[in-house]
Design a protein around this nucleic acid. Sequence first.
DNA 1: GTCGCTGCAAAACGTTTGCATTTAG
DNA 2: CTAAATGCAAACGTTTTGCAGCGAC
Lengths: 148, 148
Amino acid sequence: MPNRNTEDLKSRLVEYMDREGLRSTAQRRLVSDVFFKSVGHLSIEDMLEKVRAIDQGVGYATVYRTLKLLKDSGLAFERHFGDGVSRYEVADEGEHHDHLICQTCSKIVEFEDDEIERLQEALARSHGFELRRHKHELYGICADCRAK
Amino acid sequence: MPNRNTEDLKSRLVEYMDREGLRSTAQRRLVSDVFFKSVGHLSIEDMLEKVRAIDQGVGYATVYRTLKLLKDSGLAFERHFGDGVSRYEVADEGEHHDHLICQTCSKIVEFEDDEIERLQEALARSHGFELRRHKHELYGICADCRAK
DNA sequence: GTCGCTGCAAAACGTTTGCATTTAG
DNA sequence: CTAAATGCAAACGTTTTGCAGCGAC
């Protein structure tokens, strides 16, 4: 139950599909609806499971291609956390965050730090780079796991 | 020609192998020597090519397993830059750096910023985490590519 | 001589694509 | 009707492993 305006996301997707001349199909609506209502970082398998709970006729490739579509439209971020699996996350507008990951229990905490953002922007500029995006992941052991 | 004490790295590897009861073989010595003399971020294929220039009998699996050994011993870092390929880098002691990557020409600039390090340490602590390692990658367009 | 290591080839793994069929527009 | 989307299965690229023979100790 994310606190999120899924209607807005849906209409942005429709706009994108209109613009690109893509068709609105039952599968795309199902996959994108399920995705927009999800929290966290979902693999294709995760999505397939959720989607098949509603319609088990949906194929892996369709989920894969719809997630790609969502990524291309800017409505999903694709993440890689070191295991070989791609994960997808709803790209809430304006919101941005990095990740703090527990190496023991795999808990993922999201964070944002304006000061770090500012410093990395400055750093990129000082090396002549125009910064487009970044990946900042902190790996450690969370308080719960240390307590055990 | 990295400015690096390869003898030290070699002896640390020998220590590790002794401790673990592993054997010193011609292939392991060759692969690790080539690796320690290398700069940058090498894929298994890169390493295989360099190694086979000296002894073309060496198999892919041996390079793979030796790189894994180097990673386990703490003498190599494994990196993932988003294409599906694992890359390895010599883990010089004390030295640490993050990466600034040009999205156009794939140039990789290494950086280190103590202030960012300090902030991320504080941030992890404030979330109850004991920080073990981190990944900080900045993607953008370098000056050369923007000039074109 | 033992048991770990090598090289090969094959398996595994997640991702991506070709194609015949279905379906939105 | 037409072209795009689907589902399947197969292709892909990379990583990982089983195993027979080889070699360090």
